[in-house]
Simulated scan of single mutants.
Amino acid sequence: MPRRFLQRYMPKPDTLKRQRSLRFMAPLIADPRLWLLTRRSVANAFSVGIFCALLPIPFQMVVAAIGARLSRCNLALAVGLVWITNPLTMPLIFYANYRLGSLFLDAPVREAPVHLSTRWIAEQMHDILPALFLGSMISAVFFAVLANAGIRLIWRWHVSRHWKRRRQKRRQRRARIEAEFDD
């Protein structure tokens, strides 16, 4: 089952509770409902994590933890999926979100200069932010819904495949037993 695969890579709540830097989150970590690996909790965790990852906000992991608590989904997955937007992928993802927002706002796209600087970004922020936030919200909602539906379908496919294999093994066992009795 997908559950076994996920359990192999997920941190244990007891290990996290013992870490000094996470003691302030002990009540959140202690809630056993936030560590369940069911089809619903995993699919919702993907939605929360991807949604938060695509938002251009600071402290995405904190927002994902709050979202996991509110939606009662798997905390570790929701927080871990925020790292989809890491320092390597963030510029590409947020630029794509900006382009999408510009398309919906029918605003001209600002081309980045050859030598990108924080000064240029600060000067252009007033023009960039509306398109960036709109594009981020659109892509965050779209990919969150897509991830939720995709995880539910993959989980269901995996479980049905497992049940079919079990049924085949049972049939083969019965056929062997019947062959032994016929001899």
Rank of each mutant, 00 (worst) to 15 (best):
V48N: 03
I66V: 15
L103C: 10
L105M: 10
H158W: 13
Q19I: 11
A149S: 09
L6T: 04
L70Q: 08
R23P: 05
A96S: 14
R72C: 10
T89Q: 07
H126S: 12
L100R: 04
S139P: 05
P32G: 01
S41I: 00
Y98L: 03
V62K: 04
F143L: 15
R69T: 12
A68F: 05
G150L: 11
Q19K: 15
G150A: 11
F143D: 00
I151F: 12
I128A: 10
S160D: 12
L28N: 06
K17A: 10
A96V: 09
F5H: 08
F104D: 03
A65S: 10
N74A: 04
E111S: 09
A122E: 11
R174C: 07
R110W: 08
Q60S: 08
R165V: 10
A78D: 02
A78C: 03
N148Q: 15
I151M: 13
L129I: 15
A76R: 03
L132Y: 05
E111N: 07
N44L: 14
E111Y: 02
R171H: 07
T85P: 02
A107W: 06
R3A: 14
I84W: 00
K17T: 05
T85N: 07
H115S: 09
A107L: 10
I177Q: 14
S47D: 00
V42M: 04
K12N: 14
A76M: 06
S136G: 15
K164S: 13
M90I: 12
P32C: 04
I138F: 05
E180W: 13
A26P: 02
D106K: 11
R18E: 13
K169M: 06
I84D: 00
L153S: 11
A175M: 11
C52D: 00
S117R: 00
V62C: 04
A131M: 04
F59Q: 11
L55Y: 03
I84A: 02
G49A: 05
I57P: 01
L28F: 07
M137N: 09
W155A: 06
R18G: 10
N74L: 05
R33H: 11
A96F: 13
R72M: 10
V114A: 15
V109L: 06
A107I: 06
W163S: 06
D127E: 14
R170L: 14
A147Q: 02
L88E: 01
P108C: 04
K169F: 03
R165W: 14
T15F: 09
A112Q: 12
L77M: 12
Q19H: 14
V42H: 03
R110K: 11
P113M: 02
V63E: 02
W35L: 01
D182K: 13
Y9M: 01
H162M: 12
P91F: 02
L134C: 09
R173F: 05
A64S: 10
S41R: 08
L146A: 15
A43Y: 01
P91L: 02
Q19A: 11
F104A: 15
Y9R: 07
L132C: 09
I29Y: 02
S139M: 13
P91E: 04
V159W: 08
K169P: 00
L129S: 14
D182V: 05
I154W: 12
P13A: 07
R69C: 08
L37I: 15
A30T: 09
C52K: 00
K169A: 12
I128D: 08
S160C: 06
